[in-house]
Structure formats: structure tokens, C-alpha cells
Computed example of a mutant assay.
Amino acid sequence: MKRTSIKITSDKLDLQECYRFVEDASCGGISAFIGTVRNDTQGKEVMQLDFSAYKPMAIKEMRKIADSALEKFDIKKIAIHHAEGMLQVGEVPVIITTSSKHRKAAFEACEFAIDTLKETVPIWKKEYFSDGEVWVNAHP
């Protein structure tokens, strides 16, 4: 049985795909983190974001996060999907879902995964404002 789903794609992310992957009859809880493009950063109006990844290393790091989550928390499955390319305000750059017998493990694993992803996965974002743009080290 496959316990992880890892993806970086320029296609629109699909919450239902992530949900269906982690769904399991033995699990009483599914937790999801959905990151969305917000309309401001530090008081500046954001027009859009451009996500860029060093894909081979990013996939490898995302797999490490998923494996660590499976080891540290009593979860059954985990999906970590990240978008690349240009995204508009309101669109979704990241979805993480986890499933577990009890809700606490699913919540904790989901939080661990997004926090670790932001710290370790080589994905960067370029923020576009009405008066310019800047590369931000979204995930070192």
C-alpha cells in the first residue's frame, strides 16, 4: 500500500485528489492544510506570485518530510502537493493532507509537514506588486 503522494506541478492543485489519497476506512480523522495566495505582504498589495522549484531536490525533500511524518506521528497516509508557476490571488500553491485513526496525529503531522516544507524544500516565490516585484525565499 502506498502511504505517500508527492507532487510538484504546474497544473491546478486538487484538494479532492489529496483527500481521496489519504482516505482510509481505518482512519477517523483527515486533516488538510491549504495554502492560498493572499492579496498583501507587509502592507503591500500582491498582484500574483510565481513559484519556482529545483524539482529533483524539492521532490526528494518532500519525500523526506512525508517519511518523517509517518515515523513521528501515528498517521496512515500523507499527501504533499505544491504548485509551480504563476498563481493569482486566491489560488492554491500548496495542499497537505494526512489521515490517522485519531484526529490529533493528523493535525500534528499536517502542521509538521508545512512547517518543515517551508524550512527545507528548495521552492522560491517571486511576489509581484503594483509597483515592482521581488524574489522571496519561500522555502530555502
Rank of each mutant, 00 (worst) to 15 (best):
F112Q: 01
L70M: 04
E17A: 12
V37H: 04
A109S: 12
A69C: 14
T120G: 06
K101T: 05
F33D: 00
C18D: 07
H81C: 12
M47L: 11
W135M: 01
K55H: 09
M57C: 10
A79E: 00
D40K: 12
F107P: 05
G28D: 11
S5A: 13
Y54V: 11
C27L: 03
S10G: 12
Y54K: 11
E133V: 02
I78W: 12
K2D: 12
Q42Y: 05
K44P: 05
V121D: 08
G132K: 03
I78T: 04
G29C: 15
S68D: 11
F21I: 00
P93Y: 00
A109T: 01
L87R: 15
F33K: 02
E108I: 06
I78Y: 05
V136Q: 08
K55Y: 15
A53D: 13
H82I: 03
A66R: 02
E133Y: 05
D50L: 14
E23A: 09
A66K: 03
F21G: 01
G35L: 05
I34N: 01
L70Q: 05
K126V: 06
D11H: 07
T97I: 00
A66G: 04
I65R: 02
F51W: 03
Q16F: 03
S52Q: 12
R38L: 04
V134A: 14
Y128N: 11
L15S: 07
E108G: 07
K7R: 12
N39Q: 11
